[in-house]
Amino acid sequence: MRKSAIRAANGIRYTYTRIGGNDTPPLLFLSHFRASIDMWDPGFVERVAAAREVILVDNAGVGRSEGRTPTTIPDMAEHVLAFIDALGLDVVDLLGFSLGGYVAQELALARPVLVRRLVLAGTAPRGTGGDLALSGRTHVAATKEALGPKDLLYLLFPQTETGRTHGIEFIRRLGRPRPDPDFAVTPESWRAQLDSATAWGRPDPAGVHRLALLRQPTLVAHGEHDVMVSVDKARLLAAHLPNAVLKIFPDAGHGFLFQHHTEFADDITNFLGE
């Protein structure tokens, strides 16, 4: 996928990719922890882009984008808003995966008239406690100096024969002999992301109550055996969002959208409509 760059009014030059296109609002993809736009599953992206325009963007300090990665989710959302304004877009749909789901929620709260529909994948509401990725074996694997294919398989796919098979297929679709999930994501950047995720999860009862302000139709989706973000967080989101539908993928992990890339792409297309 060919990459482009645009300089926003804040002076930051953001790297992005646009693929597909029709008269519907574009779907903006917001990436997960330690991921540049190179880590999106091309099979998933192309399937969604067959029905509508898709935009992938690296936030400030991530991948080839300029600037420093913020240490708070609201600041990350401000950077995405600056990017959207630079493109001259008046309305978008948002797909936020994991950390990107935090940013999507914050962005929709900051400028609700901009966001038509939301897809929240493998993510959590603010203030509901630290995610599984912040402790234990998952934290150790996610914060290694260099991540390898085995770490990727553990973090994104269930430890079953089916999960491993799907994980290996995903790695092959990425198109690199030794997939590197922190490709073009510096330690300074992903540590800032970790700080932002920690702050987002800090217990705060007001966090869940803010979800009532998100009136956009929202698809909440999660893998049943997610080791990064508890599936209970998806249930919390769906229970407190006023206009949400929930889908939990059985025998799937944090990377359910790559494990079941065809099915989930079709779910998104049907949900977003025209």
Rank of each mutant, 00 (worst) to 15 (best):
Ile171Asn: 04
Arg215Ile: 11
Val208Trp: 01
Leu174Phe: 01
Gly96Phe: 00
Arg52Tyr: 09
Val57Asp: 02
Ala239Leu: 09
Leu219Gln: 02
Arg178Phe: 14
Leu132Gly: 03
Pro203Thr: 08
Phe97Tyr: 13
Pro125Thr: 10
Val208Ala: 10
Ala108Val: 04
Ala60Phe: 04
Gly67Pro: 11
Ala50Thr: 09
Phe271Ala: 03
Arg47Trp: 08
Leu56Cys: 07
Gln193Thr: 08
Glu224Cys: 04
Thr123Tyr: 03
Gly100Glu: 03
Tyr154Pro: 00
Asp131Ile: 14
Ala265Tyr: 03
Arg137Pro: 04
Gln105Leu: 04
Thr72Val: 07
Arg137His: 12
Val80Gly: 00
Gly127Val: 06
His32Asp: 08
Ala49Asp: 03
Val92Leu: 10
Gly130Pro: 05
Thr17Ile: 12
Pro125Gln: 04
Glu274Pro: 15
Leu81Met: 14
Ala141Lys: 09
Arg126Asp: 04
Ser31Gly: 15
Thr123Gly: 08
Glu188Thr: 15
Asp38Thr: 12
Pro179Val: 12
Val119Gln: 02
Pro149Thr: 10
Phe264Gln: 00
Ile168His: 10
Pro203Met: 12
Ile84His: 01
Pro242Gln: 06
Glu78Gln: 14
Thr128Pro: 01
Leu272Ile: 11
Ala238His: 04
Leu156Arg: 02
His222Tyr: 05
Ala197Leu: 14
Ala221Leu: 11
Leu257Arg: 00
Ser65Met: 05
Ala265Asp: 01
Met228Asn: 08
Asp251Glu: 12
Gly255Met: 01
His240Cys: 11
Leu89Arg: 09
Ala206Cys: 07
Gly96Trp: 00
Ala199Arg: 12
Val245Met: 13
Ile19Asn: 03
Thr71His: 09
Glu263Lys: 11
Thr160Cys: 08
Asp226Glu: 09
Ala142Cys: 06
Thr71Met: 10
Tyr154Asn: 00
Tyr154Lys: 01
His166Trp: 11
Pro42Lys: 06
Leu134Cys: 10
Lys150Gln: 15
His79Asn: 14
His222Val: 07
Thr17Val: 13
Arg210Met: 06
Val115Thr: 05
Asp232Cys: 09
Glu145Leu: 15
Arg18Pro: 02
Arg173Ala: 12
Ala60Thr: 09
Trp190Ile: 02
Glu145Trp: 09
Leu28Tyr: 03
Pro217Ser: 10
Ile248Phe: 00
Pro70Tyr: 00
Phe258Ser: 13
Val54Thr: 08
Ala221Pro: 00
Gly273Cys: 06
Leu237His: 05
Gly43Glu: 09
Glu106Ser: 14
Leu109Asp: 02
His139Leu: 10
Asn10Ile: 10
Gly11Val: 06
Asp90Gln: 15
Asn59Thr: 15
Ala50Ser: 14
Leu95Met: 11
Val227Thr: 07
Val119Arg: 00
Ala110Phe: 04
Ala199Asp: 09
Ser4Thr: 15
Asp131Lys: 13
Gly163Asp: 03
His254Met: 06
Glu169Ser: 13
Arg137Cys: 01
Asp131Asn: 15
Thr165Ile: 13
Leu153Phe: 04
Ala86Thr: 09
Thr162Asn: 14
Val231Asp: 10
Asp195Trp: 07
Pro203Phe: 11
Leu99Ile: 08
Gln105Gly: 05
Arg137Glu: 14
Phe33Pro: 00
Pro179His: 07
Asp131Leu: 15
